[in-house]
């Protein structure tokens, strides 16, 4: 790692650290409905929304009602986004006159955006009308983020309440998190991004003539969009030339801001945050990185505040930080090392005042190694999935880092809401294991952890590895799954494993190299995204309901402290053991064998 990379990470993390307490406190006040000035200003509009939708904001819900209301809300979202894509050719705000999206791609995209995954099998600038981008995809960026926040808040209420049969009102939670947290931040960030040069208009695309004729090799694809390969398995290409370049336009900044804040990650443009119209400068890159982690980090303080002991929130924050920073270091170090095969050809890969050195394949020169590797880490410890570098071009160990981070369950800060509630599930399992070791009934935050909570935690934790590994196994076994692989061997396996890890964890980033816009992958990944999102949510809400009904156990000399170093180590150990033991065999077949092959050559 270069001193510049280290300084960049240090400044970035310190600025976030400064924001955690005030922003976490603000979110706690919003979700508890305290009369702070934004809620007083918005009270009339909020009341209007409730009247319009026939909502009684004072009605409280049990966990089942809360879960089913959230499920219905999200299912209607899937149907709406699906219908919008299937009808976009006949609807306004379609200056490029895009045709309707295919049925299987519409299904995949609808599930993808509602589940906060934002996996994109399509290319935004050549597929989606402005109406679909705004009314379908951007709206779901807000609502899926709000859905994650409300589940985390419901679980926190489970700890905070006692002898209660309810965990809140899902409609007021969704409304407040959208209205007072996501919307103002998204508006502010969109304006800052426009200031940096991110495009925001409704113009049609602009055609410009290039100075020279561009010659390139165009990959041939069959009618299904799959790459055609020769007998050796290499992609078949044909020579092509062009003198025209089409510049995409559209309401990009407004979508870009919530894409990062809501840890959604779905780019308006295919190149995502690597595209200069989404992420033009070093400062815009910094703002986007900051936005991705702001809410997940702040929620740890919100948690501590709402349970009445901020030390509990800081303990969770500490565990996340200890997991986060070494992985950032490994990713950056690996990319800075470069490719030994290129080094053997005499190419200088050392960093200097004139070059960033290391592995710059797939990276933007305006970001360099440090900001690219940090982005790859930040986007995969959270459920964001936005990319400013092509993950397929990372070194084997550099690619291992994002893959492993997703497979840990995205609990290191994680997605908005999802990261916190997933980490709290690991905390429940951790205190259970500790209870077994010392022979006491496990407790967490004054609530006894009993058989029901452990059953639900097991479901919440095991759904993801099951669907990811089973999906990968099916994809590498059937012809339709193997057809989309452009790089046979260990790297091709990594591409498929990455796709299912990304879908199952609702991340949405792609390793590239895999042609996933096929009926097989659209349906398989669509199912993976749905079950990876909502089955753990149901189990988490069941835990929230169960905990809320319990009495608070007084703290005694035998109570295990859940804010000290011992608990932090226990939590980290639980996360690593579950994540590592589940996925190491699969990782060994992909990035690890690739690393050994590369460096042993």
């Amino acid at each position: 790692m270069t001193p510049v990379s280290i300084a960049f990470v240090a400044v970035f993390f310190l600025l976030l650290l400064v924001a955690v307490k005030p922003f976490g406190l603000y979110m706690a006040n919003v979700m508890e409905g305290r009369p702070i000035w934004p809620l007083r200003v918005g009270a009339r509009f909020e009341a209007f929304i409730y009247r319009l939708c026939g909502i009684d904001p004072d009605a409280q819900m049990g966990w089942k009602r809360y879960a089913i209301a959230l499920l219905i809300f999200n299912t209607l979202g899937v149907i709406f986004v699906y219908a919008l894509q299937r009808a976009q050719a006949w609807l306004p705000l379609n200056p490029q006159q895009f045709t309707n999206v295919s049925a299987d791609s519409s299904f995949n995209t609808a599930v993808s955006f509602v589940t906060n995954t934002n996996w994109q099998g399509y290319s935004g600038e050549s597929t989606m009308s402005y109406l679909t981008q705004m009314a379908g995809l951007a709206v779901q960026n807000f609502l899926s983020a709000a859905s994650g926040i409300v589940v985390a808040i419901a679980l926190i209420r489970g700890f905070a309440r006692h002898s209660a049969s309810t965990i809140g009102n899902v409609w007021t939670d969704l409304t407040r998190s959208t209205l007072y947290i996501l919307l103002p931040l998204a508006l502010l960030l969109a304006l800052l991004l426009v200031g940096q040069g991110v495009v925001q208009n409704f113009s049609g695309y602009k055609d410009v003539s290039t100075i020279e004729t561009l010659s390139y090799q165009n990959p041939k694809v069959d009618a299904g969009g799959n790459p055609i390969k020769d007998a050796a398995g290499n992609p078949v290409t044909e020579p092509a030339t062009t003198q025209k370049q089409t510049l995409p336009m559209g309401p990009i900044a407004s979508q870009e801001s919530i894409k990062e804040l809501g840890t959604n990650g779905g780019g308006f443009l295919n190149a995502n945050s690597a595209h200069p119209y989404e992420n033009p400068t070093a400062l815009s890159n910094f703002l986007e990185l900051f936005a991705i982690l702001l809410i997940p980090m702040g929620l740890t303080y919100t948690f501590g505040r709402m349970v009445g002991d901020t030390r509990q929130g800081w303990a969770v924050f500490a565990a996340m930080t200890i997991l986060f920073l070494p992985l950032v270091g490994l990713g950056t170090y690996s990319e800075q090392q470069g490719n030994p095969l290129i080094g053997k050809l005499g190419v200088d890969q050392t960093a200097s005042a004139l070059q960033p050195g290391g592995n710059m394949e797939g990276k933007e020169s305006r970001f360099g190694i440090g900001a690219s590797a940090l982005f790859a880490s930040v986007t995969t410890v959270t459920s964001c999935g936005a990319v400013n570098t092509m993950h397929d071009s990372l070194t084997p160990l550099g690619g291992f880092v994002p893959l492993f981070q997703m497979q840990l369950g995205e609990v290191v800060f994680g997605g908005v809401g999802t990261g916190l509630y997933s980490m709290l599930i690991f905390a429940i399992v951790g205190v259970f294991i500790a209870g077994l070791m010392i022979g006491r009934t496990p407790e967490y935050l004054g609530k006894k952890i009993e058989a029901f909570e452990i059953k639900m935690s097991s479901i919440a934790i095991l759904v993801m590895p099951f669907i990811v590994l089973a999906g990968t196994a099916v994809a590498v076994s059937v012809a339709a799954g193997k057809a989309g692989v452009a790089n046979p061997g260990a790297h091709g396996f990594s591409e498929i494993l990455y796709a299912f890890s990304s879908a199952g964890n609702n991340n949405g980033s792609a390793f590239g190299g895999l042609s996933a816009n096929t009926p097989f992958y659209n349906i398989a990944l669509g199912l993976t995204m749905w079950f990876g999102r909502f089955w753990p949510i149901v189990a988490v809400l069941a835990i929230a309901g169960s905990l809320a009904a319990k009495k608070r156990v007084p703290v005694t000399a035998g109570t295990m402290l859940t804010y000290g170093p011992t608990f932090v180590i226990l939590l980290i150990g639980t996360v690593l053991l579950v994540g590592a033991l589940t996925f190491v065999p699969a990782l060994a077949l992909g990035p690890i064998v690739e690393h050994l092959t590369l460096w042993g050559a």
Binding site: G62, A67, L71, D104, S106, F534, G545
Partner: peptide
């Protein structure tokens, strides 16, 4: 084709609704 995918979305909802019901039968609170 659209009907098939809409039915698939409804089936995904139904499967998750069923899970909610099944988990509530395991214990905890209603």
């Amino acid at each position: 084709m659209d009907l098939i995918f809409i039915l698939m979305i409804v089936a995904l909802y139904a499967a998750t609704h069923w899970l909610t019901w099944a988990l509530s039968r395991l214990g905890g609170v209603e």
